[in-house]
Nucleic acid binder design. Structure first.
Lengths: 114, 114
DNA sequence: ACTCTGTCTAGACACCTGTCAAGATAGAGG
DNA sequence: CCTCTATCTTGACAGGTGTCTAGACAGAGT
């Protein structure tokens, strides 16, 4: 979902183009929310690497539609993917997208001197 | 600026607490903007690892106050730091904060099977 | 076919955010 | 002390975001 170019141009090594920054910001925005970060961690750490909505709603004082909204934001950003199997819809994390974000934030400084 | 606990509890390995997710989201929100991502990359890739505001405003079709606002958001999130030397204020990236974010997005899956 | 359960969509509203114009503050240099 | 430049702060406004209620859709079981 994220353009390939940002992965080879870490934020802290070379100036981002405007286009790259827009694309990266779109994905960062998707995960920059407490509910969505927790959803992400709940899905990823759930047995089998996937979770249905019914496993998730109980962890929040939020209505079903609100959880559904947040899942949609994550889905449209390419951070998770959902699949219907029978009655339930199972979500799983798409690790490539997250790794792109992670890589972009790694700097020469942090990589070398820590 | 980011609590230490998230660094030892990657998002994708164990469920985040509500407190951790709020703290992480605060920092992710700060960088989840095209202008701020470009500011970050401009500052980090500038000679000496620092840049004054006058080096930055030229890259955007935005007024000075708007750039100043974005720099403040980054500063309050602990992503950059500013220091006045004479007439100019120089900003530099605080790499520890970014590394925390980067680490949090690294998963067992991406780390191993990548 | 009807109903029940699980999930999503649509519409509405309060709050947050990005932007600008106008004015304030800090240091340099006369 | 006054002025000039660089930057920040304040106040205002348009647009975006998170949340809810009400209703729609899909599949399972009777």
């Amino acid at each position: 979902m994220v353009d390939q170019s940002p992965c080879c141009a870490p934020v802290l090594r070379a100036p981002l183009t405007e286009r790259q920054s827009v694309e990266l910001a779109r994905v960062f925005k998707a995960i920059a929310d407490p509910v969505r970060l927790r959803l992400l961690s709940l899905i990823a750490s759930h047995a089998g690497g996937e979770a249905c909505v019914c496993d998730l709603t109980g962890a929040f004082d939020l209505t079903g539609p609100t959880i559904s909204h947040h899942l949609k934001v994550l889905r449209e950003a390419g951070v998770i993917d959902g699949e219907r199997r029978g009655t339930w819809i199972y979500y799983r994390v798409l690790p490539d997208t997250l790794r792109t974000l992670s890589d972009v934030l790694v700097t020469p400084e942090t990589a070398v001197t820590g």
